[in-house]
Structures are given as C-alpha cells and as structure tokens.
Design a binder for these strands. Structure first.
Lengths: 233, 233
DNA sequence: ACCTGAACACCGTTCAAGT
DNA sequence: ACCTGAACACCGTTCAAGT
C-alpha cells in the first residue's frame, strides 16, 4: 500500500484550489503559476498569498524557491524571454531581425504585464542575456559595425517595447471596442477643443477595419529598411 | 490682528515635515507633491500615507482632492504631459516633431516613473489629449495622409516611450557606472557563454565616452528621415 | 466643506516552530 | 529540507465623527 518513499503522511488538505496540487514545488512551477495568474488576472492580482493559494501552499513556502517578490518578477521576465524565438545566425540579418521582432511582440501580447516590468532593476536573467547575445551576433554577422549594432539594437528594441506599451495603454482591446470608446471620448470633447484629434478619429480610427495593432509591422519595416541603408554606408 | 477670514484657529501641529505646510490643500498641490516624492524616492515610495505626511496632513484628507490612488497616478501622468513643449504648427513638421520628441524625452528623464505608468487604464487627461491633438495637427499639416499620420504617430511615440523604458531598465545611471557594472557582469559570464555580448561590451560599451542615452537622437533621426521619404510617396 | 481617527481587508516578509 | 502560523510593519480605502 505505502510506497517505498515512506508511510503515507496524508494530512487532509483543508484548502483545495482549482490548480492541481501534487508534485513538489519547484522554482519553475512557482514561476509558471505566477505567469498564468498575471496573464489571467493582471499583475496587480499577483500577491505572494494569492500565488500560494493557487499552488495549494502557504505564501511562506514560496520563499524556499524565490528570494522575494522582486526575484519572482525577475524570474517571470526571464521566462518570457525564454519563450521568444531567438534570431537565427544563419538567415539574412534582416529577415532574422524581422522574425525575432514579431516573436517578441507575440510574447508581449501573451504577457502584457511584462512590458511594464522591464525596469526590474534586477540583473538580467540567462534567457535574457542569451537573447541579447544572439541579437548582437545577428547584427554583427550582417555586417554592422559595433557602433551601428548599438544604434540598431537601441532603435529596434526601443520600438518593440514602446509599441507594446502604447498598445497596452489603449483603453480598448478590440476594433469593435475602439469604435464604441472612441465615439464616447469624442462626444465628451468640448466642441472644437481637439479638432485634429477629432478629425483623425472620425476619418480614420472609426472607419471599419482599423486596428492599432496593425501599425506594428509598418514601423518595423520602416526601421529595418532605414537600417539597411545605414549598413551600406 | 485677526484677518477678515475669521479668528485664528491655530491648533498646534504635532508633526511638521520638511515640506512647508501653509496653504490649503488643492488638487494641484497634491499632484505636485506626489510628483516630487516619486522623482526623489521612486514610485514605490509613493503611498497615500507618505504623501499625506509630506503635505502635513492625514492620508484621508487627500481623498477630498483625488478620487483614489489611480486618479492620483492619472493626474501625475497628465501633469507630466503638461510639462512637454507641444509641437509648433507653424514650423516645418520635421523640426517640430524632432523638438517635441526631445521635449518628451527630457520630461521622461526628469520623471522616470512616468514611462511605466503609461498604461494607466484611466482615460487620458486634458494635457495628454491636447498634446496628441497637436502632434496629429502637425503631421497632417506637414502633408501626411490620415493613414500615414497613424503610422508616423505609432512609430515615433513607440520609439520615444520604448527608448525611455530601455534607458530606465539599464542597471547603471552614468557612463562611469556603466563601465564598472558591465565589467562585473562580464566577469560573471561563464566563459564563452555569451560571446557576441561579451565582444560588444569589450569593444564598444566599455570604451570611454559610450553613453546609451546618446543613442536616442540616432534612432529619432533615422525614423524622421524614413517618414519623410514615405510622405513624398 | 474639509479634515481626522479608528477600523477593515489586504500586502511582503521575519522568525520560531513544526515535520 | 521544506512547509507552516503567528506576528510585524506596512498598504488603500470605508465610515462615522469632528470642526
């Protein structure tokens, strides 16, 4: 009946949450659960107590696997980087950087809370460093000087993160919602107060088919094309 | 002796903070004090209780002038936008957008906490709307179509905010610190683990005179030049 | 109208104690 | 080694009470 690991020491669990509780707690399981919680309920819902509950454990048990909450957040960010397909060093730099940019954007769309956490003053994790290493390798391999690699890195990553920040800050999630909310906003403007913004909304944002997210690739290609010209200098 | 406003009702203040306490509390004074506190001590130090203390008042008094903490944060963001010199509608679009981008960047350097708060799901404030109105007016006046205005807006503001986010996330503040910390990081890399990153640091980041902040204008001009070409299409 | 003080339901984290 | 429970010093916000 009892396995070789010892006699059954089954104290009845008082609290049983949706999350299956079985395997031992590990750092990976803690991070994964934290990411799921932040994805589902927002980063402000992520507390040590709530996360413990999700894992069927007291909050303090988490501290065995995580130094503190900042360490938890840093680990979550690094896990997001681990999800990103790094740039291939075999492909042409431009297609490699384009694919990688789309992969970063997809990851930030899956985990919107990650963008605002990028400041995490903690040291960058392994996955983050590896990602940066390959980006630099890709640009260097594509013929960029060190100085131009620094320029390209700053403008590309700045754009990618900034676009995610803008996207997240929009008060609407879907194109349909955009219409409703933009209309509402428009109605609240004192007449003639913001004429250019009003015209822009009426003539562009409120037209069917507009989706802010679609703007991403335009800016990305604009930057990549411009970088290509600079590389040839 | 007593003024027309009534007899002196001076109850002795028990707590007196550095901040001079005199004038009546107003929304402006609350916002200004909150901004100063966030600038000086970081956004995580900004609590209602601490802000009240700074103003010589109990935390609950703040709620007369601010709906809740989210409203406080939204007000702070709008106050930062009010600091920005908006684009001139008289100047050439390119110089107007360049000056305005530098003004936004300067504001975000003065108030580093603002970048991460841009998501504030609250409705944008008056100063924010006015700023956006003038940016759109500037681009439209410069000959951009509505669609191209949307593109330009997304790529410019994305870059500006994203660069601020990157800048803030760097673990060093000054070029000198960069050297020290980069060296330290480098020393901790397992040998050969991040070869491109290591070479980049040794050959570029650690060279005297390197300052990440200097990258901003390169990317800005790259984008502005590329937009100019698109406008002419 | 504006400010206060006590209270409530939360936080992150410590520490000593359990197994 | 891992997990717990009580405790501490905080949060944002409510409410009834003061002036």
């Amino acid at each position: 009946m009892a396995t070789a690991t010892g006699p059954a020491r089954r104290t009845p669990r008082r609290r049983q949450t949706a999350q299956a509780r079985r395997e031992r707690l590990t750092r990976e399981r803690v991070l994964q659960s934290a990411i799921e919680l932040a994805d589902a309920s927002g980063i402000e819902a992520l507390s040590m107590r709530r996360l413990g509950e999700e894992l069927g454990v007291e909050a303090m048990s988490l501290y065995t696997h995580v130094a503190n909450k900042d360490d938890l957040l840093a680990g979550m960010i690094d896990a997001v980087f681990a999800e990103i397909t790094p740039p291939s060093l075999e492909a042409h730099w431009k297609t490699a950087m384009r694919d990688r940019a789309l992969s970063v954007r997809a990851a930030l769309l899956r985990h919107p809370w990650a963008t605002g956490l990028m400041d995490a003053n903690a040291a960058p994790g392994e996955a983050t460093l590896l990602h940066h290493d390959l980006v630099i390798g890709c640009l260097r391999g594509g013929g960029f000087s060190f100085a131009m690699t620094a320029h390209a890195f700053a403008v590309l990553d700045g754009y990618i993160y900034g676009f995610a920040l803008q996207d997240r800050s929009l008060p609407f999630e879907t194109p349909e919602e955009t219409g409703d909310l933009a209309q509402e906003m428009l109605a609240q403007f004192p007449a003639g107060r913001f004429p250019h913004l009003a015209a822009f909304m009426v003539e562009h944002v409120l037209k069917p088919g507009y989706d802010f997210g679609d703007e991403f690739e335009f800016g990305l290609d604009l930057i990549l094309d411009a970088l290509e010209r600079h590389r040839e200098d």
